[in-house]
């Protein structure tokens, strides 16, 4: 069954959706959208380094994403606003990454594959990495769910209940780095933020509790992956962007329905 490239691609897409959607809810609630985007952009430097050092792209991307996220967290509150720091670090590492890739003679590097993903080329071992990473992220988020939610609502409330919001922030940062690393092959660094944010945003209007929003977002992400790949196959369009297009259409459709219901009621 896994011999079919479409089956592998679908499994990869759904795997990323499982990790990205619940994590994306926190990204939306905490207004970290730019943070996710920046972490992903920084990952291209990791890709370049791992190609130069001949190590796994997954490991390199994750290491750089993690370092960037930690540096931003450390530097925030020392004079620069968060978005300024992110803008400096993320786009600098993207630029350094692109320049570094150009030095890599000998191997022909298809940069497009890392910027926009190459989901149709997912191998069996990629699948293991993607599902392993996704399972880790889902487990992390599920384990810390209540603590993450409390820290998101109010730092003081979290402290008063014996939690450490800084630790929860760190857990989110780590989960984000893992997600970025596993999603590079599927949607590429430029569209990872979309997989985080669009399903969560589309689910908002349908949900009454944080938990239902995460579940609905996961379903929307998975549907987008499956439908996007089918669409890409039929229409011969790029796979990663097609997945994001379906998610965006679902976002628009669900909002229109919600808007009509509200104005009709």
């Amino acid at each position: 069954m896994l011999d079919d490239f479409m089956t592998r691609a679908t499994l990869a897409g759904v795997g990323v959706a499982f990790a990205a959607a619940p994590l994306g809810c926190f990204v939306v609630w905490r207004r970290m959208a730019f943070f996710g985007d920046a972490t992903a952009h920084a990952a291209i430097l990791g890709v370049a380094l791992s190609l130069a050092l001949n190590i796994s792209v997954f490991a390199g991307a994750m290491a750089v994403a993690l370092i960037m996220a930690l540096v931003v967290t450390l530097l925030a509150g020392r004079g620069y606003a968060m978005d300024t720091l992110l803008g400096v670090l993320a786009h600098s590492s993207l630029a350094f990454g692109l320049v570094a890739v150009s030095f890599l003679s000998g191997i022909r590097v298809d940069l497009m594959a890392y910027l926009f993903g190459d989901i149709l080329a997912v191998s069996r071992s990629d699948l293991v990495v993607i599902w392993g990473g996704a399972a880790l992220v889902v487990a992390l988020v599920a384990w810390r769910w209540s603590a993450l939610l409390t820290s998101t609502l109010s730092e003081e409330l979290a402290y008063a209940s014996g939690l450490d919001p800084k630790r929860e922030q760190l857990i989110l940062t780590v989960a984000l780095a893992i997600t970025v690393a596993v999603a590079i092959k599927v949607v590429g660094v430029l569209l990872i933020a979309a997989m985080l944010i669009v399903p969560a945003a589309a689910a908002r209007g349908l949900a009454r509790t944080p938990e239902t929003m995460a579940v609905i977002a996961t379903a929307i992400g998975a549907i987008s992956a499956v439908a996007g790949l089918q669409g890409a196959y039929v229409l011969d369009t790029p796979a990663g962007p097609s997945i994001v297009c379906v998610a965006a259409i679902l976002f628009a459709g669900l909002n229109l329905i919600g808007w009509r219901n509200r104005s009709g009621a």
């Binding site: 939306v28 209540s146 409390t150 003081e156 409330l157 908002r204 509790t209």
Partner: peptide, 25 residues
């Protein structure tokens, strides 16, 4: 400790019912 913070901003993107909030911790 029962803590009532100074201000608590519930982001409009975060759906949460009073019942769920009561069970927060």
């Amino acid at each position: 400790i029962g803590y009532v913070p100074q201000r608590l901003h519930v982001d409009p993107t975060l759906p949460i019912t009073v019942e769920r909030f009561m069970r927060l911790t």
